[in-house]
Amino acid sequence: MTLSPTRLRVIRAAAALTAGATLFVGGPVGAALAAPPAAVAAAVDHSLHLEGAPNARDVGGYSTVDGKTVKTGAVFRTDALNKLTPADLTKLEGLNVKVVDDLRTVYERVLQPDKLPAGATSNWYDVLGKASPATAADLSLAYVAFIEAPGASEAFASVLRDIRETDGSVLYHCSQGKDRTGWTTAVLLTILGVDRATVNADYMLTNEYVEEGGSSLTGSLGGAGVKQEWLDSSFATADAKYGSFDNYVREGLGLTDADIAALKAKLLV
């Protein structure tokens, strides 16, 4: 398989993170930074190849530090669904999408109303509706707000509970599929035991799929693409506020040991 220059950069970055970074999560929830970098995972094509949502991806396919694999076809992350084509909707129907979780504000939802695949129900979990208006223009503030803003933790936790409970696949999204959606994915993969280098590489793939999709993904929360420092700030804020990622999951998100076990049982093979 021939890798694009962007993907090669992602692989090299993941390897560098594995060699030099120190992970501050531990215990049964968080995964220690493992020796195997994200090279194999990053070489997998996670894109759903939706014409109307170029940043739509399968969250599965990644390996955990204890040798398991995150199931494919169970959880999807996407950008806004308002431009989905009939073929895109048919593809999502074929992927058995039963729940669509929308992380956007009411303003975004009015501007870009979702198109839903047949048979899917929609939930609205507004992450930043109660955050400072400054977060819409300053992503460094937004990624802190993901941890600290009123209602944000409840929104992220609701997505995780939907994943646990849904008989079928779950799709969650924001406007650009990179920030609120990116943190949701980072939390989920870390809970499942995926190492930080791979979590980082998955997050940075937005820059490749935006490039390949020919879309700037400009919208209500920042411009195109992502930066590693933004994701790092969310992890650092969770650690500072709760003492560890494990505590963030249990105290901030309110997930119990039974919730975590159920997510792992459903999504790991």
Rank of each mutant, 00 (worst) to 15 (best):
K71I: 01
T72W: 01
G73C: 07
G73P: 10
A74D: 00
F76G: 10
F76Q: 05
R77F: 08
R77S: 09
R77H: 08
D79F: 02
A80D: 14
A80W: 04
L81C: 00
N82V: 10
K83L: 13
K83W: 12
T85G: 11
P86R: 13
P86T: 11
L89V: 03
L89A: 10
K91D: 08
L92T: 05
L92E: 02
L95Y: 03
V97D: 04
K98I: 00
V100A: 02
V100E: 05
D102Q: 02
L103M: 09
L103S: 07
V106M: 08
V106F: 04
E108T: 08
R109S: 07
V110S: 10
V110P: 04
P113Q: 03
P113A: 02
D114L: 04
L116H: 05
L116Y: 05
P117H: 06
P117T: 05
A118S: 13
G119I: 12
S122I: 14
D126A: 11
D126E: 12
D126W: 05
D126P: 10
D126T: 11
V127F: 06
L128R: 00
L128T: 02
L128S: 02
L128D: 09
G129K: 11
G129I: 02
K130N: 14
S132H: 04
P133Y: 08
P133W: 07
L139S: 08
S140F: 00
S140V: 07
L141R: 09
L141S: 03
V144F: 01
V144H: 09
V144L: 12
V144N: 01
F146K: 05
I147W: 01
I147L: 07
A149Q: 09
P150I: 09
P150G: 09
S153D: 10
E154I: 11
F156A: 01
